[in-house]
């Protein structure tokens, strides 16, 4: 079953030139707000750093369990722009290396949660008022009964702390948000003429769900996905902050903040810079998310 939202689906039928025209128009709408462009720049920078971390970071060897007591707890300077931690590792290098884990978190969570939550929402919305729908939506209600953070902490506390398990825990708790969202949209469009026509023409359920209904639900899903990248990364950082994420010596932003807080105020750079890095990533995805919303809305 192909449940992954597919960007090209609606545009695939259009001639090539028209398709390019759509991209150009979309970019125009997106770039109307300078803030969205700023968000996109931040995201690109983070991805760039995550890919080329080895060459960009000044001390790539500091990513591991290196000890360098000669320069321990050094404040920001030319050789260490963001200072060093208690055992002398360069904080800038560790932050740059932590970006890859953060992005993995966001991408991994969305790759699991969107298809699963989305298909459940499609099914529940299409067969609304049937047993399946009631079951799925009540199940979603149960998962939504608690703030996501509490449930995520609860689930990840029963597993060994690692990046993979942190992702798993977030996935377990995040699918209902997409289910509820798609459910709402599908219920509102399932009686539109084009859906009815497809039914009358004898189209299969897969065709109706994925070719007729799904393409018309995608705009808000894309907006939410952009925003959720930021939130998933933040949740991952929160998990590693309380010690349920990636384990030392692999650098992770949340754990760096947690360690650094013990050395406030004198060694402020140990917590302030990693915390700012997290904020910057979330900010980037939020700004870009607003842009995506503008881009996909029909209002000029």
């Amino acid at each position: 079953m192909n449940g992954t939202p597919h960007a090209g689906e609606g545009a695939a039928a259009l001639p090539r030139k028209k398709r390019f025209e759509n991209v150009r128009r979309a970019w125009y709408k997106f770039s109307l707000s300078k803030l969205s462009v700023a968000g996109l720049v931040i995201i690109c920078a983070v991805i760039f750093v995550a890919v080329f971390q080895k060459w960009l970071s000044p001390y790539p060897e500091h990513v591991g369990a290196v000890v360098n007591f000669a320069e321990a707890s050094a404040p920001p300077s030319f050789s260490h722009p963001l200072g060093t931690d208690t055992i002398g590792r360069d904080i800038l290098s560790r932050i740059l290396f932590a970006f890859r884990g953060a992005l993995t978190m966001g991408v991994g969570v969305l790759a699991v949660v969107v298809p699963i939550g989305g298909v459940l929402g499609l099914v529940a919305g299409y067969w609304n008022n049937r047993g399946v729908s009631t079951f799925i939506m009540r199940l979603a209600d149960v998962f939504l009964a608690l703030p996501a953070l509490i449930l995520v902490l609860c689930v990840s506390s029963i597993m060994e702390p690692s990046l993979r398990n942190a992702m798993l825990a977030v996935c377990v708790c995040w699918w209902p948000y997409y289910t509820r969202m798609l459910f709402g949209i599908v219920v509102s469009i399932r009686n539109e003429t084009y859906v009815r026509s497809a039914e009358i023409l004898g189209a299969g359920y897969a065709h109706i769900l994925f070719r007729e209904i799904l393409p018309n639900c995608l705009a808000p899903v894309f907006t939410k996905m952009t925003l959720d990248m930021g939130w998933a990364i933040l949740l991952g950082a929160t998990l590693s902050f309380v010690g349920m994420g990636e384990q030392a010596p692999t650098p992770s932003l949340g754990a760096m903040v947690a360690d650094g807080i013990n050395y406030l105020p004198d060694q402020w750079w140990m917590s302030v810079f990693p915390a700012s890095a997290i904020m910057m990533i979330v900010l980037g995805f939020n700004l870009a998310g607003d842009g995506v919303k503008d881009m996909l809305s029909n209002v000029e």
Partner: peptide, 23 residues
Amino acid sequence: SYFGVVAPAFFWAVLVMLLFAYL
């Protein structure tokens, strides 16, 4: 309010603590 929404609680915690408990 934009920063209030995107910045995680521990970011504010570090900042406020630095400001009002130490500086």
